[in-house]
Simulated scan of single mutants.
Amino acid sequence: MASAATFGTLDMVRAFAPVLGTNGGGGILNVLSAMSWFSYDGANAYGVAKAAEWSLTNGIRLELAGQGTLVTGLHLGSADTDMSAGYHGEKIDPADVVRAALDGVEAGRIEVLADEWSAYVKASLANDPSEFFVATAR
């Protein structure tokens, strides 16, 4: 799963980046996940795919900066979509995700944390990882 998702994104960027560069730059928004930064039992393949996507996003940001293309990573927990219909935890309204993404791109941000959960997970990266895993394993 990680390979297909990562190489699909890379293929898409390779297709559009030259056009953006020819036109003086532009923007690429890659929808990631708070699971870019942690694993969850039963969703390990998804977490691996999103971690790879996060790394890819950081790499293409460096590669495309010289042509004036902004590459923004959008992280969120769970949005209230068909994909998360079976998930019964807190979900963000998709319209709020879109607003956060557009506001971030307009502000020139390289990373957008669309909800409190993704902000919490990202902040936990600076701590001892056992603290996060103990807190989420309950």
Rank of each mutant, 00 (worst) to 15 (best):
H88R: 13
A85F: 10
E90R: 13
T72V: 12
G77N: 11
G86R: 02
H88M: 14
E90Y: 08
A100P: 09
L74Q: 05
D103H: 12
E63M: 04
L113V: 08
V112M: 06
H75Q: 09
E106D: 10
K91T: 12
E111P: 01
L113D: 13
E111C: 02
L74E: 08
H88G: 15
G104S: 11
T72P: 03
L76F: 15
D80K: 12
G66C: 07
V97H: 04
P94A: 10
A85N: 01
G66D: 03
D96P: 01
L64T: 00
R99S: 14
V71N: 04
Q67N: 07
V98G: 10
P94T: 10
V71I: 11
E106G: 01
G104K: 00
D103S: 15
V105L: 13
R99W: 07
D80I: 02
L62M: 11
M83D: 00
R99N: 13
L62G: 08
V112F: 08
G86P: 03
T72R: 06
V71F: 10
A101T: 08
G89N: 09
G86M: 12
A85M: 08
K91C: 10
G104R: 02
A65F: 02
M83Q: 07
E90A: 15
Y87E: 11
V71L: 03
T72Y: 09
